[in-house]
Design a protein around this nucleic acid. Structure first.
Lengths: 225, 225
DNA sequence: GCAAAAGTGTTTGGGATACACCCATGC
DNA sequence: GCATGGGTGTATCCCAAACACTTTTGC
């Protein structure tokens, strides 16, 4: 390979789609841009990735700096999503973005403010770059992951009720599931076990609390959906 | 974002895992390196991706130059696989590789030679970089794609027999399937139609030829496996 | 006692699995 | 007529889907 000019790589950036569930609504973490391009618009937390660091390392730094979220402590699950590379996606010049998708729970960005917030995936503000497409793709991926893996654990507390579990699925899938069939099926998958704790809240019957046998990603023997 | 030093992006490369089926064996296209690093070892076709071109555009150029394969004409299916970015994967310096996975059929690299060949995925030569891992991952992805999409069309000619279809699955999955169950299931998926042609070869009953209704990727209503 | 969510079973239909023999052809 | 791969059916079991009422609690 001979280059007549010195080789000029594209800029490499990283972006994170961080989901969490709040009141049974799937939300995504965004930061508001204060500078051009897209000043005032909202964007996924992210930034440049430099030589000598992995994209995940770069992501950890950027997400911590820009949103006050520690991807290792605050997220229960993270995976690489896709690399977006269209030449026009950044008006300043060609930037290839390696994106990640992660799930957390009651994340409280230490930088929480009017410029760092979670938004419901179904009512996003105006977004910078191609971030709307990235979020759409991440949501699709998350939904797929819930159908064939135990990835829901990423969205739930350590102990949870079956109703919480079901509503997590419903929030991600965007549709309702049958309570009896859902419970029957999930319990036969052998992913969770009953605890001795009960969840008591409100004027109604308390619910058994369950926990996952395993907080690591595994494939289901029988898919959902 | 203020950088005290000028921002130095990692090198960006692209690599292609190109599969085809030859005599019911799943093969992958490799080129032999003539220079260090890894001189003499085999590698996936690929190379640098520069500013101003998408990674797929870069891939088309590199695969054509190095292996004489036109990814648009010779491949029936291609998708982005994953971005490999460990700092040590290239001994010359940090290089992030955006990889693609594709399928073709009777590809004849115009550069076919002792340094551009297909190898069975189960008996690969010594590989440069992390290309062994990339191939493993691509194989896994292909296998997954066959279970929940119609992606097999990428490995088959326009018209094919049910036995060819089944052996394509078997070659990718690496295990045998029951003939009667396979046929019954595939025919009820409504993905293929009978043609009026027959495949006549050898001293035995001729086989009906089928074709896909649709040569575009779609999800199956019921997964395999 | 009443409002609110938790918990629970049965029926039915469709698809997955297991399994072995006849058919059409070339030589 | 025989060797070779093409083509076919049935029984069983498991699971998905549909569907409504009772239980436990706080007030």
């Amino acid at each position: 390979m001979n280059y007549t000019k010195p080789y000029q790589p594209p800029t490499v950036t990283v972006d994170a789609v961080i989901f969490q569930l709040t009141n049974n609504v799937l939300e995504v973490l965004l930061v508001q841009r204060s500078k051009d391009p897209f000043s005032g618009a909202w964007a996924l937390p992210g930034g440049y990735s430099a030589q000598g660091e992995t994209t995940l390392e770069a992501l950890a730094v950027k997400v911590s700096t820009k949103a006050g979220v520690d991807i290792h402590k605050d997220l229960k699950y993270i995976e690489q999503l896709y690399t977006f590379d269209s030449v026009a996606r950044d008006p300043r010049g060609h930037a290839v973005s390696v994106t990640y998708m992660g799930c957390g729970l009651k994340i409280e960005p230490t930088k929480a403010s009017e410029t760092t917030q979670f938004f419901p995936v179904d009512s996003l503000p105006a977004l910078a770059y191609d971030h709307k497409e990235i979020i759409r793709y991440a949501h699709e991926r998350l939904s797929a992951k819930l159908t064939y893996t135990n990835a829901v654990y990423g969205l739930l507390p350590k102990q949870f009720t079956l109703t919480q579990l079901q509503t997590a699925y419903e929030a991600v899938f965007g549709r309702e599931l049958d309570k009896r069939n859902f419970r029957k099926k999930f319990l036969t998958l052998d992913l969770i076990r009953e605890t001795k704790e009960m969840f008591r809240v409100g004027a109604h019957r308390p619910a058994k609390l369950y926990e996952f046998n395993n907080q690591k990603l595994e494939s289901l023997t029988r898919s959902f959906d």
